[in-house]
Design a protein around this nucleic acid. Structure first.
Lengths: 215, 215, 215, 215
DNA sequence: TATGAATGAGAGTTCATTCAT
DNA sequence: TATGAATGAACTCTCATTCAT
C-alpha cells in the first residue's frame, strides 16, 4: 500500500467517521489542493460535500483541524510507514543488481508521488509558511532515510555498484530527479507515462551514481 | 545582473514609483514570502512600509495587483532577460570544456535562486493554485530554453562531451539538481555554501551527462 | 416548607416528568444560575444531566421553556404559596411581641432567600431584561403583601409597637435589609451566619420601626 | 460631578474617540441595559449607532471590550472618584447635625443611582455571572468605604449622634435603603420623586441609627 | 421514549477597499 | 499626494432545534 490516500482512508476508517464526515474530508482534500487552504471557505467544503455548514464542524473543531487531519499522516505516520513497507520488500532482494533496485525504487516513489498529488499540492505551500511543520517533516524524513537507507546503500557500495557518497547526498539526487518528473502532473495535472519516466530517470541516475572505472 | 531583486528594482524605477510605493512593494515581498499572500493583510503591509493603508492603494488598485507587480517580472521579462544575459556571456566561451561550462552555469543559477528566495517562496504556492500562471511560466521557460540552450547543448554534443539527449531532458536534470541544493535555504532560510554545493552538483551532473565510452 | 426548591420539585412531580427530565431541570437550574441563561448551551445542559441533546427537547419545546418552567413557580404560585404558609403560622401567634414576630419573619425570609439562591440568581437578570415579568412579579408580591401583611401590621400598629407607616413602606425596609444580608451568599456563594445576621437585622429594624416615645 | 455618565463621557473624551465611536458606546449602553449584553448583537449596535458593523470594531477589538469600556469606570475609577468627591465636600461640613448629613448623603447617592440606571442594569447581571468582577468591585467599595467613611462615622459616634456600630454595618443599611428606593426606576423605568424618597429613607435611617437614650 | 448526527440561520469578527479631508 | 476612519461583504464558527433511527 503505497498510496497515502489509502493510508489516509484507512486512518479515517479507524476513527468512527460517518459518511458525511468522510465526504467533508474528501471535499476538503480536493478544494485545498485546487484552490489552496486560505481560498477555500467552509461554505465551499459544505457544498461540495453536500452537507450543512454546521456538519463540517461536528468532527473538526476548526478549519485548521481539517487541514491537520489531512496533513498529519504525512508528517507523522504515513511517510515512514510507506518507507518501511517499501524498504522491507527491498531488503529481501539485496541480490538485485543496483540498476534494477534503482529502477524499482524510482518507479515506486514516482507512483507514490503521483498517487498523492493533491496532498503534495496542499503540503508544499504549508511547508513554505510553517517553519515548524517543515522542520518536523524534514527531521522525520532524515531519520527514516538515515536509519533505513544507509545500510542498503552501504551494501551496494560494498559490491562496487554505488559511488561512495553519503546516503543523504545519494538520496538528494534520487529524490529530486523523481520529483522533477512528477512536477507536470502535480502542478498542471498533466498525465505522466510512469514507465517511460522511470526508465529515463533511472538511466540518468545510474550513470551519475555508478563508480567510475578508476574509482 | 543575475539578481531578480535588481531587475525588479530596475523595473520599478522605470515606472515613476515614489519612495513610499517602493516601500510598499518591499514590505509586500517580505510579508508574502514569510506568511503567504492570503495571510498578509494590507494593514500588515502598510505598517511594515510605514505608510497609511490608503497609500497602498495609490499605486496598486488591488492587493492582487501588488502580487502581480512582484510576479510579473518572473513570468514575463525577468527570467528570459537573465537567461539571455547569462547565455550571451556563455556563447563567447564555447571553447570552455563542458565540465567548466556546467560549473559556471550551476553556480550562476544557484546564486540566482538563492538571491531570489523570497520571490520563489511567493511564486511556488501561486503556481500551484493558478494553472494559467503555471502554463504561462512553463511556456516562457520552455521557449527560452529551447531557443537558446538547444544550440549550446548541440555544440557540446558535437564535441562528444555531452550525451545526446534532448535539451529539455538535460535541462530538467540540471534544474532539479540545482534546486535540490537550494531547498534548505528557500524553505528554512538555512545558509548554503554555494561553492561546495556547486562542486557537488557539478560532479554528479557531469557523471550523469557525459557520454559513455562506447556511446 | 419554605424552600422554593421543594415547591419546585413538588410542582414537577405533579406533572409526569421522567427522571431524565428532572435531571434536565436540575442541570438547567445549576447552569443558568452559574453562567446565566444565554451563556448556557443546551449541550451543557444535556451533558450535566447525562442525557442526549434531543432528550432535552422531549419535555420542553424550547430552551426558553426550561427557563419558564424554572421561573413560573416564582411569579405565579411559589412566592404567594410560601407567603401564605408563613403568614398562616404567624396569624396564630398574634400575641407575640412585635420584636419577636420580626425576628421570626426575618429569619424565615432570610433562610428562604438563602435556600433559593440559585433561583434568585436566575430571576434577577431576567427581571432586568423582561419588563413584563418584572411587572407580573411585582403585582403578585404587592397584592400578596397588601392583602395578607397589612392586617398583621395593623395589629401591631394598634398595640403601639409598630410605627404608623403604610404596609408597603414597612415591607420595603424589611425586605431590603434582609436582602442586604443575603447578597454575599447570593452573589459570591459566601456562607452566612443566619442567626447572627437575623439578630443584627432585627435589631436595626426594630429601632427603625418602633414608634418614638412621643408618637 | 456625581453622574457616572459624565465621568464616562469625560473618560471617553480623554481618549480621542470619534463621533462614531461615541455613538457606538452610547448605543451599546442603551442596548446592553435594555436587552442585556448577550441578547444585543453587534448588528443592533451598528444600526442604533448608525454606523457600519466594521466601525464597531475599529475602536473595540471585541464586543466584550465594549462592555469593559462601559464597566471599567465603575470597577476602577469612577466609583472611588465619585465617593472621594462626595466625601471631600462632606468633610468640610462636619459641623452638620447627623440627620442633615444623612439627608445630604442619601439624596446624593440616590441621585447618583438614578442617573446611572443603565450602567447598573448592565452591571448587576454581569456581577452575578462573573465572580472576579464581583470580588474586584466589592474590594474597591470596601476599601473606599473603610478608609473614607469610617472617620466620618467616627466623628458622629463621638458626638453621640450615631450608634456605635462598625462602619460596614452602617453603610449596609444606608446603601440597601437607598437602593430599595431606586429599584422601581432601575427595574421598570418608573419615575422616582427623589425628594420624597430622600425624606422617607432618611427618616427611617435616622431612627434606626440613632443611639438609644440609654446607650 | 431516547438518541445524537445533522441542520442552517445568525453570531462575532476580519479585511480589502473607498473616500472625505 | 497621503491619510486613516469608515465601509460592508464575506468569513469562521456556534448553537437551538429537528428528525431518522
Amino acid at each position: 500500500m503505497h498510496n497515502l490516500q489509502e493510508l489516509f482512508d484507512a486512518n479515517l476508517a479507524s476513527q468512527p467517521l460517518s459518511d458525511k464526515q468522510q465526504a467533508v474530508l474528501q471535499a476538503s482534500l480536493t478544494l485545498f489542493a485546487d484552490q489552496g487552504f486560505d481560498r477555500t471557505t467552509t461554505k465551499d467544503i459544505a457544498q461540495l460535500a453536500q452537507v450543512a455548514e454546521g456538519t463540517v464542524y461536528k468532527q473538526f473543531k476548526t478549519k485548521q483541524d481539517i487541514l491537520n487531519a489531512i496533513l498529519a499522516p504525512f508528517a507523522q505516520d504515513v511517510i515512514p510507514q510507506a518507507a518501511n513497507e517499501f524498504l522491507g520488500s527491498l531488503r529481501d532482494q539485496k541480490s538485485l543488481p543496483f540498476a534494477d533496485f534503482l529502477r524499482l525504487a524510482v518507479k515506486d516513489r514516482m507512483t507514490y508521488a503521483l498517487d498523492n498529488r493533491r496532498q503534495i499540492r496542499i503540503l508544499v505551500p504549508e511547508l513554505l509558511h510553517n517553519a515548524d511543520l517543515a522542520k518536523q517533516l524534514l527531521a522525520g524524513v532524515q531519520e527514516n532515510l538515515t536509519n533505513q537507507l544507509a545500510p542498503l546503500f552501504g551494501h551496494y557500495q560494498t559490491t562496487g555498484e554505488l559511488v561512495a557518497w553519503p546516503a543523504t547526498r545519494i538520496m538528494r539526487y534520487i529524490f529530486s530527479i523523481v520529483i522533477s518528473y512528477g512536477v507536470p502532473a502535480i502542478m498542471l495535472g498533466q498525465p505522466v507515462d510512469v514507465d517511460a519516466a522511470t526508465n529515463e530517470a533511472t538511466e540518468f541516475l545510474v550513470r551519475g551514481l555508478q563508480p567510475k572505472k578508476e574509482e
